[in-house]
Design a protein around this nucleic acid. Structure first.
Lengths: 347, 347
DNA sequence: CTGAAAGCGCTAACAC
DNA sequence: GTGTTAGCGCTTTCAG
């Protein structure tokens, strides 16, 4: 158990060497030539005393804190933040970094978000991750630029800060293909009504995938509503009302899929026997607890957090150029998580 | 926008005073007597140059970082972590502190968790919050003791570290009372099977509340199963199978309640007309998206995070004695969140 | 009312 | 091979 009162000096005294030597040995400084014997003495003295480095003092001296700031919007509203933090934390720690987390409100003024960044800068973080809880475009506080920064799950409204986002179109394709491969030819899409990238991108990919499969993508039924269970329920009722209703349903998200389940139940439709359903988001709380389990496309929050952290550290350590990568946001795969809501269409 | 290259010295030069005076003015040191005129000069010079303090250097000098370590178990598995972090972050920032967050695995070895604490200690955090994702007893890494610490949502297996936990019994009472007040007299409980405090405490409170209301608490039907939707479904089918099935159902958590909804639907029971249901946890993703909305008891994660932070800072700043408060864990209220799953029993 | 000097714990030139 | 010295940016006696 490391003793907070032991410094490099105490170790030096105990080992009968100078502080410099202790520093050299403990940090395995490449150019330092210290005899093996001395090294052993130093190490065992450090061990004995329970020495732990004072990262603060190191940071002050080296101008490197080994701390990454994570500004996370609305950290408590979705389970997504947790996955981003986990991905970032694991990637950071693998390289000796730690995370300083600050919650910020997506709806907060630019000024208040500027102050959040400021707090991080005063702590002399080596870089900043700015994470949003859904894929969108953000207006960034100007002081974000004073240190290497990466956007997670969003792109900058202006300018060219490096960013990592989910492959919305790819995710939608995977979802629709799963339905196609199960044999469905009448496939509908229940979409969100709000103006966010995913609304448009998923719809486009939905139609394109059908068309590529030889179906009429443009004619495929689409119903939009609020992106919760109630909206999904209403949209599903509408889309299933026709003469030849779809046998496969792609839903904008898992909450809407949850509503679609209810609509199906009311209409006497069994899932997946009479109706196959695919969701989006992989909100496990919903997807795994619906009956039957909802097959859905996962958003790569963990991967985005890890990717951003990896690359941020590379930039900090001069292993890569941030601007270079910044031209286009990096797009991460959205894999399909198979549960039990997809089956072949009836006859 | 604060300039990272400006130090107290630069401000001093610009204002034509010494660094000491700048420090005195900017920190509003009580015993410092500086003329108003000088103060103004200093402040405007600081403003002009975009000076921001180097918290690292301050910390090294004052032996106070103003950083709290938050060791959160399994941060990504539940949405609970987000609420704890939010509560902690807001409480911390209100007092000038920031959070360094590290994820740790609840199932990880004591040694690996000791290393997590060690990382925090090397950063010289002023105190540590150790948070678990469900109310339980934890074996703590011994080095946690080297700095003021508080447990969030758990109690120490041994020893007397201060802790804050939810009022499980109170929450259960509130839930059962809601059913009672709606007029139900046949009330059942769907419980979890695992050996955690909440399993026992909620059951006890369930029976006690019924008995206090003049019913036979000991005879009230209880069925246990795995704490997910499938378990809730099975337990609900069993509990509703009898001659005179309950008209009100208290469920161990929202996921089990979700299963109970399915069981009710299969049995042709309308909620709340034929069956009233109350959950526990207030997992909004489920509770708000079920139909009808699930009335449920909320766990005070935000409040626990805030409370712990408040008190940790008090202890750090010497405003209270941690040991003193440590005798018994502090218990925070679990309020009922009313939605639409409770109604009067039929006739 | 204001400033000079020392030092928090560490690292990096440079000297020996 | 190892030690001396200076200094990262700040606060805090202590003198004036």
């Amino acid at each position: 158990m490391s003793n907070r009162n032991i410094g490099i000096k105490d170790v030096a005294v105990a080992a009968g060497v100078s502080a410099t030597t202790v520093s050299h040995v403990l940090n395995e400084v490449s150019y330092a030539r210290v005899s093996q014997e001395t090294r052993n003495k130093v190490r065992s003295a450090a061990e004995q005393l329970g020495y732990g480095p004072n990262r603060l003092a190191q940071a002050l001296r080296t101008q490197r804190t080994g701390v990454l700031g994570l500004l996370s919007e609305d950290i408590a509203t979705t389970p997504h933040a947790g996955r981003i933090i986990l991905g970032a934390d694991e990637a950071a720690r693998a390289r000796g970094y730690n995370l300083m987390v600050i919650n910020t409100s997506g709806s907060a003024s630019l000024e208040s978000r500027r102050a959040d960044v400021e707090a991080l800068l005063e702590r002399r973080v080596d870089g900043i991750l700015y994470a949003t809880m859904y894929h969108r475009s953000v207006e960034l506080p100007p002081n974000l630029g004073s240190v290497p920064s990466i956007l997670v799950d969003s792109v900058a409204a202006d300018g060219d800060i490096i960013a990592v986002i989910p492959d919305e179109a790819g995710g939608a394709r995977v979802a629709v293909r799963a339905l196609l491969e199960a044999g469905h030819t009448r496939i509908g899409f229940i979409n969100n009504t709000t103006e966010v990238p995913s609304t448009r991108l998923r719809l486009q990919a939905f139609r394109a995938t059908l068309t590529e499969a030889g179906l009429d993508g443009d004619a495929a039924p689409v119903e939009s509503a609020a992106s919760d269970a109630q909206g999904g329920y209403e949209a599903a009722l509408r889309i299933l009302a026709g003469e030849e209703p779809p046998t496969g349903l792609f839903c904008y998200n898992d909450r809407m899929a949850m509503g679609a389940y209810r609509a199906a139940a009311e209409l006497g439709l069994q899932i997946p026997a009479d109706l196959s359903v695919v969701g989006f988001d992989d909100q496990e709380l919903i997807a795994a607890n619906l009956h039957p389990g909802l097959s859905t496309v996962a958003l790569p929050h963990y991967a985005m957090g890890a990717w951003a952290t990896e690359h941020l550290i590379d930039a900090i350590e001069g292993k890569s150029d941030l601007p270079q990568t910044a031209v286009r946001p990096t797009i991460l795969r959205c894999p399909l998580v198979c549960r039990d809501s997809i089956g072949p269409p009836r006859n």
